Amino acid sequence: MGNAVTVTTKLSSTHAEALLAAMRAQYLLSLNEHWYVDEYRYVPQIARHKSILEKSPVMAAQKSLMAALSLSLKAVK
């Protein structure tokens, strides 16, 4: 990532867990919405998720943020 942006914040564990849960729910809704769109109908299921992420920068960012939150929460526990 040539023009990567770094975001640093401090959240309580409770807030981080709540944010992670909300992001997971939104991500799953978005994935389900995109999964059955005609644009991805002929993309094999094994490659469909990657294809959706390549065309949806919001979902790609959500995935990265969810991974960072999960890792941070594991480090705290």
Rank of each mutant, 00 (worst) to 15 (best):
Q62T: 08
S13N: 13
S12H: 06
S12G: 10
P57M: 09
H34Y: 14
S70N: 13
E54L: 11
W35V: 04
K10G: 08
S56M: 03
R41Q: 12
A18V: 01
T6E: 12
H49W: 03
T8M: 13
L19M: 13
K77Y: 07
A21W: 03
L53K: 07
E17G: 08
T6K: 15
V58M: 12
T8N: 14
Y36E: 09
S51E: 11
M59L: 15
A67E: 12
A68N: 01
V58G: 07
L73K: 02
D38K: 10
A67C: 02
L28R: 15
A25T: 05
A16H: 02
H49P: 00
A75C: 05
R24S: 04
S70K: 08
T8Y: 06
A47Y: 12
A67Q: 03
L20Y: 03
E33W: 13
M59K: 01
E54Q: 15
T6C: 06
L29Q: 15
M1I: 13
K77S: 11
S70L: 10
S72Y: 07
K10F: 09
P44A: 09
I46H: 06
V58S: 09
K74N: 13
R41K: 09
R24I: 06
L29R: 14
L73A: 04
Y27V: 00
S72I: 00
V37P: 00
R48V: 10
Q26C: 01
K77A: 09
L69F: 03
K55W: 02
M1Q: 11
V43P: 07
A75F: 10
A68D: 04
K50D: 07
L20N: 01
M23Q: 14
T14D: 14
Y27F: 15
T14A: 14
A21E: 05
N3E: 12
L69A: 03
L65T: 02
M66D: 09
A4K: 14
L71P: 00
L11Q: 05
A4I: 00
M1C: 10
R48P: 08
V76L: 15
K63W: 00
E54T: 04
M1V: 12
A22M: 11
K50P: 00
L19E: 02
A67D: 10
N3I: 12
E17Y: 10
A18D: 05
L19A: 07
R41G: 06
G2I: 12
Y40N: 00
T14H: 06
S72P: 08
L31D: 00
A16S: 08
V43T: 13
I52N: 00
D38P: 02
P44L: 07
Y27S: 09
K77P: 01
L20D: 01
H49E: 08
K10L: 01
T6G: 08
L11A: 07
S70I: 00
H15T: 14
L71T: 15
Q26H: 05
M66Y: 04
K55H: 14
V7N: 07
T14I: 11
N32T: 13
T6N: 08
Y27D: 04
M66V: 05
